[in-house]
């Protein structure tokens, strides 16, 4: 909004105040995220800039907090860093284990949420869908209902959701469940919980993409002799793919960032990065947390860039179709 030429001096003053206010809000939004990056290179165990850091003295900066990410939980942190040392890091280091857990849980939760969510979104966007409003409200509700309520409900229910290890179901699913054959304290339990939390995001993004989708294309494909599978993979999928991928990214980030459900339903084996951070902040807070935070900020910058590219591609694609 440029200032019109007829603006009075008072309006001019207000306009510049307004710009300053906006600047302050942008600063408020971004400063906390940017501040963790230099702080994570602190040479001292403080959460603030030391005088040495302020004078840009190289001695004030170090990679020691990044190093603790590798050595925490390592049986011989000070040994020579040969290949066996590094393989121990891969097998034993606490943060590396947490990262692996977060990644796998996030991946499977995303696959589950995206598959089920995309198919459901296709049904929801059809004009004939019965009870659409009610079902939509139910499917979005994991995003609205406080996570603590979901976590409490799941912790009660998953402790009871058990199969006998020697039964037929136990033989198939036993490896995914806890030692007692329950969903509680198991990877499957955490994956299911995270999938539930990711589903609203998939539904929202995919139905949003489908609102610009020309339903007559489906009829056209059918009339040209395509079966439903071909229609989906050759006609629908390429057009809504940006929506699916950004929904999947949302689902992945939701899982990757989720800590409350993990705290309530996971066992000690399912240590994830957010849980490790949560415990770290609660107990002895050290700049090691900030070095993890820095890595996560870089990850989110990459994800954001990806989503933006997808969104633009989707808008371009939709620009071609009528409506």
């Amino acid at each position: 909004m440029a200032l019109p030429t007829y603006a009075s001096p008072l309006e001019r003053a207000w306009y510049y105040t307004y710009l300053v206010i906006c600047g302050v809000v942008f600063l408020f939004l971004i400063a906390p995220i940017l501040i963790v990056i230099p702080l994570s290179f602190n040479a001292e165990p403080y959460f603030t800039f030391t005088p040495k850091m302020l004078t840009l003295d190289p001695e004030g900066y170090s990679l020691r907090w990044y190093d603790t990410l590798l050595t925490l939980g390592h049986p011989t942190p000070d040994a020579v860093r040969d290949s066996s040392w590094w393989s121990t890091v891969w097998e034993r280091a606490t943060w590396v284990q947490a990262a692996k857990n977060s990644f796998w849980v996030g991946l499977w939760a995303t696959v589950l949420a995206t598959t089920l969510g995309t198919i459901a979104a296709l049904g929801l966007s059809r004009p004939e869908m019965p009870y659409r409003r009610l079902i939509m409200a139910l499917l979005i509700s994991p995003m609205i209902v406080p996570i603590i309520i979901i976590a409490v409900g799941m912790s009660f229910f998953f402790a009871k959701a058990c199969v006998a290890p020697d039964s037929a179901i136990g033989a198939i699913f036993g490896v995914f469940l806890s030692d007692k054959g329950c969903l509680a304290n198991s990877y499957l339990g955490v994956i299911v919980a995270h999938a539930v939390l990711g589903i609203p995001f998939v539904i929202i993004t995919v139905t949003a993409t489908l609102t610009g989708f020309d339903q007559s294309l489906i009829r056209a494909a059918h009339s040209l002799g395509a079966n439903p599978r071909t229609t989906f993979f050759k006609v629908i999928m390429p057009l809504i793919l940006p929506g699916i991928i950004s929904g999947a990214l949302f689902a992945f980030v939701t899982s990757f960032d989720e800590v409350v459900a993990v705290l309530f339903i996971a066992g000690p084996a399912q240590q994830t990065i957010p849980r490790q951070m949560f415990n770290g902040i609660r107990e002895a807070i050290s700049p090691a947390i900030l070095s993890v935070a820095t890595i996560l900020v870089i990850v989110s910058v990459l994800l954001l860039a990806m989503v933006e590219l997808l969104r633009r591609r989707s808008e371009r694609l939709r620009g071609v179709t009528p409506r």
Binding site: L29, V36, P274, M277, I285, S300, E308
Partner: peptide, 19 residues
């Protein structure tokens, strides 16, 4: 400036505020 905080981990933002 709006979307980066939106995509950044909640725990990152919380620990940033502690710092």
């Amino acid at each position: 400036f709006v979307l980066l905080p939106f995509w950044t981990s909640l725990l990152v933002r919380t620990s940033a505020w502690i710092a």
